[in-house]
Nucleic acid binder design. Structure first.
Lengths: 364, 364
DNA sequence: CCGACCCTTGGCATCGATAACATACTCGAC
DNA sequence: GTCGAGTATGTTATCGATGCCAAGGGTCGG
C-alpha cells in the first residue's frame, strides 16, 4: 500500500479485546465520529479550558465507542514532553532504599508521571553515572537521584545540570535540589535518648564513609556527645550488612565499659546484638542498643529494637513534588528540604544499672 | 517564525554542557556534516548491515562532534517500538518482591530495554488491574507481572492478552508465560529437613491464601507430611508480617507437643521465634523453626535462622528472557519455567531431644 | 565485453498528535 | 445597533526518525 506501513499492522498496546481487525483508531477517526476536528479532540482530551461541555461530551463518547487511546510517542514527539521521570537507586536491598523507591513511584504516578528506574549495583560514581545517562537517553523530564553519594563526579555533575534533578539523601550537585531526612537529628535523638537513660557515653557503629546519611549520623552522634560534655569513643566502621554489625559487636562485647551503642542501621544493629549475646553481654540489661530505619522486623526480634524511624513515603512525595515544581519552573530557587525522623523506643534500651550512675555528671 | 515552534526551544535532555545556544542537533545535521543522507545516518546508528565501514565511521565522527542523540519519541513513533518493558509489583516491602524487582530491572537494562514500574499497594485485583493498564497506556512492549495472584480478574485477563506478559510467581493467565520458584519444593525441603531431624510432625504458619507462593508452600508441606505418613496439624494463617508471626507463635507456644514449625516467610518466622521465647519455649532446643526467603538478617538474629533461599536475580533474568522471546516471536509456545530454591541450614533447627523420639515411628 | 546481481545510498511518504495562528461566533455594554 | 472582548473550533505546519522503493556503482560469470 503506502511506502511506509509500520504502524499500520503492528499491534501496539490495545485496551480492547482486539477481536475486530480494524487498525488502531487515530485521533482523526475520533474526530470524524464526533463531527469535530482533530484539534478539538486533542483539546477535549487534554482538558483544555475553551471547549464547550457538549462538544467534550461528544468527543468522549466517540473515544469510548472506538476504544481510542492517544498514542504516546506521537504526543511526546509533538509536545516535547515525555511525562516520565527517572529514578536512580541502588540495587542493594537495604530496606531504606527500596522503600524510598516505592514512595517516589507512588507519588509520581499520582501526579500522572510514569516512572522509569535505573539501578546501580554499587555506589561507585561510574556506575551511578551510567545509570543516570541511561535515563537521560530516555528523555525523562527529570530525575530523582536516590543515592547517598557524598562525592559527585564531574560526569554526574554535568548530567544533573542538563536534566532537572532532585537528590534524595545525597550530596548537593550544582543544579540540584535536595531532599533529605535530617540524619544529624536522627543521630541526636538516638544519642540523647541513651544519655538520658543515664549512660555515661555512647559508642557508635557507623555506615561507610561514602554514604552521606552515614556521615550525617556520625556527626550528629559526635556533636551530641560533645555538647553533653561526654567523651567521644572511637568510631567503629560497618558497611550496613548484618555481618559487619556482628563483627563490630564482637569488639564491643570485649570492652568492659561499653553500656550504650548507637548503630547506624537496624540491620547492623541486629548483628551487633547477636554478637553481644555471644560475648555474654545482655541487651538491654548490660548494653543498650539503638538502630536506625525501623524495619518491619525491629519490633519482633528479641529484644525488640529501639530505633529511629524515617518517613520514606513522605520523602518520596516531597522529592517528586520538588522535582515537578522544578520541571515546571526551572528558575525557581532550589531550596533544600528535610523531613524529620522519629525515635521509636522499644526494648533494646534501658536505664543504666547500679547506683553509681544517675544523671550526675551532666554539664551543659 | 514557524507556526509550530515547540520542539525548537524546549530543552530536552542534552548530553552536552549546553553552553552554546544551538538547538538540539537532528539527524539532518549529522547527515550534512558527514556528507551523507539522513537515511544513512539512521542505518549507521541502527547497526544496519549494508553500510560501508568508512561511511559508518564518518557518521559516528559527526555524531560525536555534534553530541547528537537520537530522539526517542520520533524513533518510537516511526518504528512503533518503545524498547520499554513494564513491571507490576507490590509496594509492600516484603523482601522478596523488592529483590525480584531489582533482578528484573538489571536483566532488562542489560538487554537494552528501559523499565517502567507500576506498583500496587495491595493484591486486590482492581489495584493490580489499574497498575497494569497504566503501563499499557505507556506503550510498553511487554510486562512482567510480579504479583503472586492466585485468581485473575477478567480485566487482568484481557490486559494480559493484549500485551505480552510474563507472570512471576503468580497464576497463569490466558496469554501468559509463567516463571516461578518451585514453592512446593521449597516447602518440601524445609519439611523434609525437619522430619529428618526426628520431628514427629511439622506445624505450618502459612501466608495468605490469595498469594500463590503461600499456596504452593502449603501444599508442599502437606504433601511431604502425608507422604511420610505423618499427621497433618491444622494450618495457622499469617499475613507475612512479623506481627502475624508473633500472634501465631503465641498460639504454638501453648501447644505442648509442637516441636517443629515451618513458617512461610523469614519475617513471620522472626515473629514466631520471639513469641516462642516469650512463652518459655527455646528455639531450637524445644522447637525448631524454618523460614523462607533467606533475608539478610536471617543469619544474624539469634538464633540464626534455617531457611529456604530463593534465587531472585536468576528469576528476574529468566522472566525477562522469556518476555523478550515472546515479544520477538509472539507465537512461540509459552513454556512455564521454574527455578529451584535452596535450603540453608543454620541454628534455628535441631534434632529432637530426649530418648523417646528417634526415628522410631516412621512408616513409609 | 555485457548482463545479472549484490552492496550502498538517497528520496519520499509517513507515523499521530500538538502549537500557533486564524476564523467564526457569543454576549454584554455603550 | 454596533463594537469589543473573549470563547469555541478549524487549518496548517511541524516534531524527528524510519520503512519501502529505486537508483548508482561495482563485481563476477559467461
Amino acid at each position: 500500500m503506502s511506502p511506509h506501513t509500520p504502524a499500520a499492522d503492528r499491534t501496539p498496546v490495545t485496551g480492547r479485546t482486539a477481536d475486530d481487525d480494524t487498525r488502531q483508531p487515530g485521533m482523526a477517526d475520533v474526530a470524524r465520529l464526533a463531527g469535530v476536528s482533530a484539534q478539538t479532540v486533542s483539546r477535549a482530551l487534554a482538558g483544555h479550558p475553551h471547549v464547550r461541555q457538549s462538544t467534550r461530551a461528544k468527543v468522549l463518547a466517540a473515544v469510548e465507542e472506538l476504544g481510542y487511546r492517544r498514542n504516546n510517542a506521537a504526543r511526546m514527539l509533538s509536545s516535547g514532553r515525555s511525562r516520565t521521570i527517572g529514578v536512580v537507586t541502588l540495587r542493594t536491598t537495604f530496606y531504606s532504599r527500596a522503600n524510598l523507591l516505592f514512595g517516589i513511584e507512588a507519588a509520581a504516578r499520582e501526579a500522572g508521571y510514569a516512572v522509569s528506574t535505573a539501578t546501580s549495583a554499587s555506589l561507585d560514581t561510574a556506575a551511578i553515572e551510567d545509570a543516570l545517562s541511561r535515563l537521560a537517553e530516555q528523555d525523562v523530564e527529570g530525575v530523582v537521584l536516590s543515592v547517598p553519594l557524598v562525592h559527585v563526579s564531574p560526569g554526574i555533575e554535568r548530567l544533573t545540570r542538563s536534566v532537572p534533578t532532585v537528590t534524595v539523601d545525597g550530596s548537593r550537585t550544582a543544579a540540584t535540589e535536595i531532599v533529605a531526612v535530617d540524619q544529624t537529628l536522627a543521630a541526636r535523638l538516638a544519642t540523647r535518648h541513651l544519655i538520658e537513660l543515664g549512660h555515661e557515653t555512647v559508642w557508635h557503629v557507623a555506615g561507610p564513609r561514602e554514604w552521606l546519611d552515614a556521615a550525617g549520623r556520625r556527626t550528629g552522634w559526635r556533636d551530641t556527645l560533645e555538647e553533653a560534655g561526654r567523651s567521644v569513643p572511637p568510631v567503629l566502621e560497618g558497611d550496613w550488612t548484618p555481618a559487619s554489625g556482628y563483627r563490630n559487636g564482637l569488639v564491643l562485647g570485649r570492652i568492659p565499659d561499653v553500656t550504650a551503642v548507637f548503630v547506624a542501621s537496624d540491620e547492623m544493629a541486629f548483628g551487633v546484638i547477636r554478637a553481644l549475646h555471644e560475648t555474654g553481654r545482655r541487651v538491654p540489661r548490660d548494653i543498650s542498643v539503638v538502630g536506625v530505619d525501623d524495619i518491619a522486623l525491629a519490633e519482633y526480634c528479641s529484644p525488640s529494637l529501639t530505633t529511629v524511624a524515617q518517613p520514606f513515603a513522605e520523602m518520596g512525595a516531597l522529592a517528586v513534588a520538588r522535582l515537578l515544581r522544578h520541571i515546571a519552573d526551572p528558575d525557581a530557587a532550589p531550596e533544600p528540604a528535610s523531613v524529620e525522623p522519629v525515635l521509636v523506643v522499644r526494648a533494646s534500651t534501658a536505664p543504666v544499672e547500679g547506683p553509681a550512675q544517675g544523671p550526675a555528671k551532666r554539664r551543659s
